[in-house]
Amino acid sequence: MMSVSRMEAHASARRFLGQTFSGGSGWTVVMQPELSFEHDFAWCVRFDSQEHLDTGNRALAPFTRVVVVPKNGEAPHFPPTHLPVAAYLDQLAAGD
């Protein structure tokens, strides 16, 4: 299995978010590397919107505020919202 460093995961997540929110979401994306965490299968990179951080207004926050960056080189993506992130990562690691 290929390995992705924390720094590579953050860079990959930043590119993914730049592409995802480039179409006028109205948010200023702020990376939160200090809240990122590592799982055996992937890095989970946290982010938020500056507008939410400034006001505390949840309506100004992205619905999902974590990007999953698989360590095997697969594309970064948002986790499904119907599962806790840890459960989703365990499913990915198991091949489900």
Rank of each mutant, 00 (worst) to 15 (best):
Q32H: 05
A9K: 08
F37W: 12
H39Y: 08
F16R: 07
S12P: 13
T28R: 08
Q19F: 08
V30D: 02
E34A: 13
R15K: 15
E51Y: 06
D40L: 13
A11C: 12
S12A: 15
Q19V: 12
V45W: 03
H39E: 02
M31S: 04
H52V: 03
L17Q: 02
F47N: 04
P33I: 01
G23V: 14
S25W: 05
A11H: 08
Q32Y: 03
P33V: 03
V29H: 00
R46E: 10
D40R: 15
D40Y: 14
S49L: 06
A9D: 04
G18T: 11
W43H: 13
F47V: 09
E38V: 05
V45L: 11
R46Y: 11
A13G: 09
W27R: 03
F37I: 08
Q50A: 13
G24N: 08
W43T: 11
W27Y: 05
A9W: 03
Q19G: 14
E51P: 03
F21E: 06
F37N: 11
V29P: 00
H39Q: 04
V30I: 11
R15S: 14
E34I: 10
F16T: 10
G26P: 00
S25L: 05
P33F: 00
Q32D: 04
E34Q: 10
S36Q: 01
T20Y: 14
T28F: 06
G23P: 09
V30Y: 02
A9M: 08
S22Q: 12
T28S: 10
F47H: 04
G18Y: 06
E51K: 04
G24F: 04
H10F: 11
L17E: 02
D48K: 01
L17V: 06
S49Q: 02
V30Q: 04
E34M: 10
F16Y: 07
W27E: 01
W43D: 08
S25E: 03
F47P: 06
V30R: 05
H10C: 15
W27P: 00
G18H: 09
A42P: 05
A11K: 10
T28P: 07
H39F: 07
A13T: 05
E38M: 07
L17T: 04
A9P: 07
H52W: 07
R15M: 13
E51D: 06
S22D: 10
G26T: 01
W27L: 06
C44T: 11
S12D: 15
S49F: 04
G26E: 00
T28W: 05
R14M: 15
V45S: 13
E34T: 11
A11N: 12
E51S: 04
W27S: 01
D40T: 12
F37R: 13
F37H: 12
G26F: 01
T28K: 08
R46H: 14
W27C: 03
